[in-house]
């Protein structure tokens, strides 16, 4: 399962080899074109809507439900879907639908925030390395190589053990792993851009490094970065699920989708609904994010503009 880290790294590295359009001026039309191309990709569009629908379900749902996710009724125990409990109840008699919604909030939050952490570190780090080049770049990227070769499982467990269990730590731990691929992609994008005239012009105008990196370089590698980010969210959610399997997930009585699915798979033939509902939403979210990411990649790839 921790293979997914490497998988995403490998999967997305090729994105960076084709930097987005090199000129700021063309930026606006690029985005318009990309949106237009995305519109032609039905699967990606459907995915976008599905994702939004699931997010709404999880965020708004608990307010509409009459049930409290922590309210137990040991007398009823695990029961299948019914008119009162649409998704059934778990083994402690808690309403599964609310738990799925609230689990979705946690899983999506883990996915989004950890990706954001990765994005922030990765983009700044990669852009700096790529822009400065030379020895600095070599040293910075060697550091990435080193971190990349650390086995994720061992480190997450040690981190959790060292700093206790908290949601924030999980963001940091996962973000810490995922920023590496982000940094590599941004770096190679920036490297290609650095030679372009408009950057050299900016340098000759005496703009500060900071300004050049933040204002000129990063906006131009944003395309691939968005693609990678979209694909990182599902990868992060899978990692979170893996941690739940190890029992390292969020603290009870809260439960992420990972925790719910892990609980469900243990009794899949006697209480199938405990697996089916959370797994359905989890898989659907991952499906839609993956297809959205692939669609965005197709849309933002300047080569396909010539179609």
């Amino acid at each position: 399962m921790s293979g997914s880290v490497e998988a995403v790294l490998g999967a997305d590295e090729d994105v960076g080899r084709e930097p987005a359009t090199p000129e700021i001026e063309r930026g606006a039309s690029l985005w318009r074109d990309a949106w237009h191309r995305l519109g032609k990709n039905k699967l990606a569009l459907i995915s976008l809507f599905v994702f939004i629908a699931i997010a709404l379900f999880c965020v708004v749902g608990p307010f509409l439900s009459p049930w409290d996710s922590q309210q137990q009724d040991l007398m009823i125990g695990a029961q299948g879907p019914s008119a009162t409990h649409w998704f059934g109840t778990d083994t402690l008699g808690r309403d599964l639908m609310v738990r799925v919604m609230e689990g979705g909030r946690i899983s999506l939050m883990v996915g989004l925030i950890a990706t954001l952490v990765a994005l922030l570190i990765g983009v700044l780090y990669g852009a700096t390395a790529g822009y400065l080049g030379g020895k600095t770049d070599a040293v910075m990227m060697r550091l990435v190589d080193i971190l990349y070769a650390l086995p994720f499982t061992i480190f997450v467990i040690l981190l959790m053990v060292a700093f206790g269990r908290s949601l924030w730590l999980m963001f940091v731990a996962i973000g810490f792993v995922e920023w590496l691929s982000m940094a590599r992609i941004v770096r190679s994008g920036v490297m290609a851009l650095r030679k372009q005239e408009f950057i050299e012009a900016a340098v000759s105008l005496g703009y500060s490094h900071r300004r050049i990196i933040l204002k000129h370089l990063i906006p131009n590698v944003l395309g691939p970065v968005i693609v990678v980010a979209t694909l990182t969210v599902p990868a992060v959610m899978l990692l979170e699920a893996f941690l739940s399997f190890l029992g390292l997930g969020v603290q009870p009585p809260n439960a992420s989708w990972g925790v719910l699915i892990n609980e469900g798979q243990q009794n899949m033939e006697i209480f199938p609904w405990l697996l089916i509902f959370p797994a359905f939403f989890f898989a659907l979210t991952l499906f839609s994010l993956n297809f959205l990411g692939d669609g965005l990649r197709d849309a933002l790839d300047p080569k396909s503009a010539r179609d």
Partner: peptide, 20 residues
């Protein structure tokens, strides 16, 4: 769409669901 969706199933379900 169809073959990609099918192949995607493997990364949309955790291995601890697929295995059991």
């Amino acid at each position: 769409y169809v073959p990609m969706s099918v192949s995607m199933a493997g990364i949309c379900l955790p291995t601890f669901v697929m295995g059991p």
